[in-house]
């Protein structure tokens, strides 16, 4: 019994593990609550693109010595604007515009980083460094999570209206474009914080998988939001334990646990369908 308690408590006798856990849970909640909307509206590719496109911003901020967070946000805004510009007036389909811009931004980030940063820094940005979360990072992550959850709940009715029926939104004077922009801004914010925990390459897992898993077993948005946040949190906790005891990269393990949960949900859904 004592051994079990020891096993559970031991990782969190290190303060960096505690900070990592809190930061990871906050990020998980922020991303997962957005993921319900990302999955519903089919914005997965856009989410992935934004997560990758922040790289040059981080690189430049790193070189110039200002806030990585602001650098990342700036790059996300620039990328979103560039995608909008290329897709404008249907000269290019949106997915092609997203593809061109995001790979271009990501490549720019890689090149800048290779000139200015050590290989380990690059690794942290690409694959996350949840155990390197500082107290300052934690405050920032908490603020961002609060902002995302507050915006989602305050603008809930606008989000569901514009997602369900853009014509109706227009007819009541609510611009679907504005709502979409708001959602993109929130996704960019979430992606920037998630880079710290799972890294730019795996951010998409937090932005899509919890919502996709929840959508397998419920058709109710409120339940879906709670389930997604719950699963992402559990995956973060489990992932940290597994990573601690097996000495494997935490970002990858968290994503793997989450993917496992998705498979489980999909399996449950399949069994329910056939037994009906």
């Amino acid at each position: 019994m004592d051994a079990l308690i020891e096993f559970i408590i031991e990782p969190f006798t290190h303060t960096f593990m505690v900070r990592g856990l809190i930061g990871g849970l906050l990020t998980a909640v922020a991303c997962a609550s957005l993921s319900a909307f990302v999955v519903w509206r089919g914005m997965s590719f856009m989410g992935d693109a934004l997560a990758h496109a922040v790289l040059p911003g981080i690189a430049i901020a790193y070189a110039a010595g200002f806030s990585l967070f602001l650098g990342a946000l700036g790059a996300a805004a620039a990328a979103a604007a560039a995608m909008g510009l290329f897709a404008w007036q249907n000269r290019l389909k949106e997915d092609a515009a997203i593809g061109v811009v995001f790979v271009g931004f990501f490549a720019l980030g890689l090149v800048i980083l290779s000139r200015i940063a050590a290989y380990s820094d690059l690794g942290h940005i690409l694959f996350g460094n949840i155990l390197g979360i500082s107290t300052g990072d934690l405050i920032l992550i908490a603020a961002v999570t609060l902002a995302i959850v507050a915006t989602l709940s305050l603008c809930f009715k606008e989000l569901i209206t514009a997602s369900f029926d853009p014509a109706h939104a227009m007819s009541i004077g609510l611009s679907p474009e504005l709502v979409r922009g708001l959602l993109l801004a929130l996704i960019a914010l979430a992606a920037v914080t998630a880079i710290q925990t799972v890294g730019a390459v795996l951010v998409l897992a937090l932005l899509v998988t919890p919502g996709a898993a929840a959508a397998q077993i419920t058709r109710r948005l409120s339940v879906s939001l709670l389930l997604a946040a719950g699963m992402a949190s559990i995956a973060t906790l489990l992932g940290l334990y597994i990573s601690y005891y097996t000495d494997t990269p935490s970002g990858g393990v968290i994503v793997l646990v989450l993917t496992g949960m998705f498979c489980l949900c999909a399996g449950i859904a399949a069994v329910c369908r056939t037994s009906l």
């Binding site: 519903w40 009715k157 369900f164 853009p166 014509a167 109706h168 959508a215 419920t218 948005l221």
Partner: peptide, 23 residues
């Protein structure tokens, strides 16, 4: 709107949709 203009797969219930008329 025309049926096709609306996302019927949305995770919403009837009451939520009717309430949109009040927004």
């Amino acid at each position: 709107p025309q049926r096709g203009a609306v996302d019927w797969n949305s995770p919403l219930n009837v009451r939520q949709v009717v309430m949109m008329g009040r927004y």
